[in-house]
């Protein structure tokens, strides 16, 4: 990902900010200028809850390029406390321990490292709540 593209998504990656539509009330975990539901441009940024539970998940054994060395890892569809669903890696857990309904919370981690001289990209992941 290019530096400007990463920089534009920082509010989402770092603070789990999404968009709420003031016209129809639709909430999306992504940063949008137009409501994906009703097309209104009367939208504002909203901080999503940091806690939720595993709605669904998959264990990745054939990772895409750049993630081969973390094999296997868990990607979860997380249902946040406000009902918003968001995809994220689940860390600090044995893949066997992940179950639907597992309570998780946001943690801040490295997402990827661009070679020896590029930038380090950070963002949210999830980990089990103890």
């Amino acid at each position: 990902m290019s530096v400007p593209k990463y920089w534009r998504i920082i509010p989402h990656y770092y603070r789990l900010e999404g968009t709420i539509c003031k016209n129809c009330g639709y909430k999306t975990p992504l940063i949008r200028k137009i409501c994906p539901n009703c097309g209104s441009d009367d939208v504002e940024r909203v901080r999503l809850p940091r806690e939720g539970e595993v709605y669904s998940y998959t264990v990745v054994y054939s990772p895409p390029e750049g993630f081969e060395r973390h094999n296997p890892y868990v990607i979860g569809l997380i249902k946040l406390k406000d009902g918003t669903k968001i995809l994220g890696q689940i860390v600090d857990v044995d893949p066997e321990e992940v179950k639907i309904g597992l309570k998780v919370r946001m943690t801040f981690r490295r997402i990827s490292v661009d070679g020896k001289s590029g930038i380090i990209q950070y963002g949210y992941k999830f980990k089990p709540v103890k």
């Binding site: 060395r69 973390h70 600090d92 943690t107 801040f108 981690r109 490295r110």
Partner: peptide, 16 residues
């Protein structure tokens, strides 16, 4: 630290 942790991610967790 796990492979995706460094002094910045640790500082963020402590600060939070």
């Amino acid at each position: 630290p796990s492979y995706d942790e460094d002094m910045i991610t640790i500082a963020v967790e402590a600060a939070t």
